[in-house]
Simulated assay, not measured.
Amino acid sequence: MKVGYARVSTVDQNLDLQIDALKGNGCEQIFQDKFSGVTDKRKGLEEALQYVRSGDTLMVWRLTTIPNP
């Protein structure tokens, strides 16, 4: 099973683009968070990691990196 995870940094941002992309790639279950990147607790991510089983694929829309100073 494909499981998706979507996250935005603020409650003002919209998850629709990410959710549409994850659904378009076959994700049957999608977990989400709307929190700052400095937050240690990400309930949606924790739920996704508890949900996935051996053989499942956890998908995200994209990964970004922050350059080191």
Rank of each mutant, 00 (worst) to 15 (best):
R7N: 00
V38W: 09
R62M: 14
G24A: 12
I19Y: 04
G24E: 10
I66E: 11
D56P: 08
E46W: 08
G55E: 06
M1R: 14
K2H: 09
L45V: 04
K43M: 12
C27W: 01
N14L: 06
L63C: 11
E28F: 05
R62I: 13
V8I: 09
G4L: 05
Q18V: 04
L58C: 03
L58Y: 03
L15Y: 01
Q18D: 07
E46F: 04
T10I: 00
L45Q: 02
M1I: 14
T64K: 10
D40L: 14
T64M: 12
G24I: 13
F35V: 13
W61Q: 12
L63E: 11
T57L: 12
I66R: 12
D33R: 01
M59Q: 14
G4S: 01
Q18T: 03
P67T: 14
Q50K: 15
G37F: 10
A48R: 03
D40V: 10
D16C: 01
L58Q: 03
K43P: 06
D33N: 02
K2S: 05
A48W: 04
D12E: 13
G37L: 04
G26L: 02
Y51G: 05
L15N: 00
A21K: 12
K2L: 04
Q32W: 03
A21L: 15
L17C: 08
K34H: 04
V52D: 03
K23H: 10
G37E: 02
K23M: 07
D12N: 15
M1F: 10
W61K: 10
N68G: 05
L17V: 12
K34G: 02
D16L: 08
S9I: 07
Q50W: 09
L49H: 06
A21R: 13
T64E: 07
R7V: 09
Q32F: 06
Q18K: 00
L22P: 06
Y5I: 06
K41D: 12
K43V: 12
L22K: 02
L15M: 09
R42G: 05
R42I: 07
G24L: 09
N68V: 07
G26R: 05
I19F: 01
N14H: 08
N25S: 09
T39M: 12
L17D: 13
S9E: 09
I19V: 15
S36H: 11
E28H: 08
R42P: 02
T64Y: 05
K43C: 03
V8G: 03
N14D: 15
G55N: 07
T65D: 10
D16W: 02
D16V: 03
C27R: 01
L17W: 12
R42E: 06
G37P: 00
A48T: 03
I66H: 14
R62V: 14
D56W: 08
L17Q: 14
F31L: 03
L22E: 05
G44C: 05
Q29I: 15
G37H: 10
Q29A: 15
L45W: 06
M59H: 02
V52N: 07
G44S: 01
V52W: 08
S54V: 12
A6V: 07
W61N: 14
Q50I: 06
R42H: 07
R42F: 02
